[in-house]
Nucleic acid binder design. Structure first.
Lengths: 194, 194
DNA sequence: CGTCTATTTGAATGTACTCAAAAGCGGTGG
DNA sequence: CCACCGCTTTTGAGTACATTCAAATAGACG
């Protein structure tokens, strides 16, 4: 069960067995049922969640009650409201489960403790954060430069597993379009695609 | 001249005088004239630039030749093509100067050297990167949830200096709208605003 | 099987874009 | 110091991409 996260870490840094022990001792396993909240608007995001199985989503609910999905997280991904997690102030995101989900929690306190006791982890999370930054920059630029159909095609190619497992409503919300329009896009694609 | 960057660092970490020396020895000053490229599409972003004075912009040029601005950087900001800088592979962004600009360069090599020799800097850049990630996440959500006029108002409130110093064309490109439409938005605002 | 949610389809609407042209502004050179 | 050139901003008419609202259809789950 902890294998997945150790493997993930091993991709970025090399750590000794005692350091592994230390790290694992700071984690707390948790199960989140489908449709259950992990975090609600206005709460402080005390924990970052590493997904072992299942799927989480983070989203913003605007003043008209529409949801805008920031991120999905399946196996081998971290999920948090980064604004709230890094500052430990109340956030404005919701995080909930799209499937029954198992996660390992790392509190911000424990994370900072870890950074002091083992600087390799500071490197690990620096790299993870760099990658997150790069992917969000790419997303900003794609949203600015591409029409909805292109964004959908890229999404489908980049995250085939998401297309399989997620309802179209969720994907539409991530892409920034209505579910109706996504349906029309898919209809169009059936006829123009060879 | 190096005061600005030392002050910036002091906001996040405490370092000794010799560590300051080490850090400064890894920096290279450079001047970039208005309209001059700092980086072009297809090049490897060898350096991250800390702006001492002036203003840089990073942007993506799409297949129709339109420019989409990812970021502006004025005094006290870092600027790089993060994808290319972190991987040292060719990037797809342009970076150029909107004003005559002075920067301090830190190569990725030197940065990694610095991380090994003084882990405090790994913390400094982790925090900087976390903040960058948070602000790009916020931008994604604002682009998804708000109409152009709201995005402009928020931009104007958040970055008053940018409104002062940047041509509207550039701001429009950052917001993801045409300069013509931004002009119309500003016209509307004059009449509906008390 | 029935209910609830997700998806599809269509018509009317709106936000933002395109293209074209005029007006404003700033820098530069005569 | 003023005139001119280039670039930015404004204005307007026509258009396109995407939304809204409504209703029908299909799927999933208990």
């Amino acid at each position: 069960m902890s294998e997945l996260i150790l493997k993930n870490i091993a991709k970025h840094i090399a750590i000794t067995a005692p350091q592994q022990e230390l790290f694992l001792s700071l984690l707390e396993p948790k199960k989140i049922k489908k449709r259950q909240y992990f975090l609600q608007e206005g709460e402080v995001c005390k924990n970052s969640a590493f997904v072992i199985s299942g799927c989480l989503r983070s989203y913003f609910a605007d003043s008209n009650g529409f949801e805008h999905i920031l991120q999905f997280a399946m196996e081998d991904w971290w999920m948090a409201d980064m604004m709230s997690y890094t500052t430990q102030k109340p956030g404005n995101l919701f995080i909930d489960a799209l499937e029954d989900t198992e996660v390992l929690l790392l509190s911000r306190d424990n994370q900072l403790k870890l950074f002091d006791q083992c600087p390799s982890f500071e490197r690990y999370f620096r790299v993870i954060t760099e990658n997150g930054l790069v992917s969000h920059q790419r997303r900003v630029l794609e949203n600015l430069s591409l029409p909805a159909m292109e964004r959908y095609k890229i999404f489908a190619k980049r995250y085939p597993a998401f297309i399989q497992r997620l309802p179209q409503t969720q994907i539409a919300s991530y892409l920034g379009i209505t579910p109706e329009f996504l349906s029309k896009i898919r209809h169009q694609m059936m006829y123009q695609k060879p």
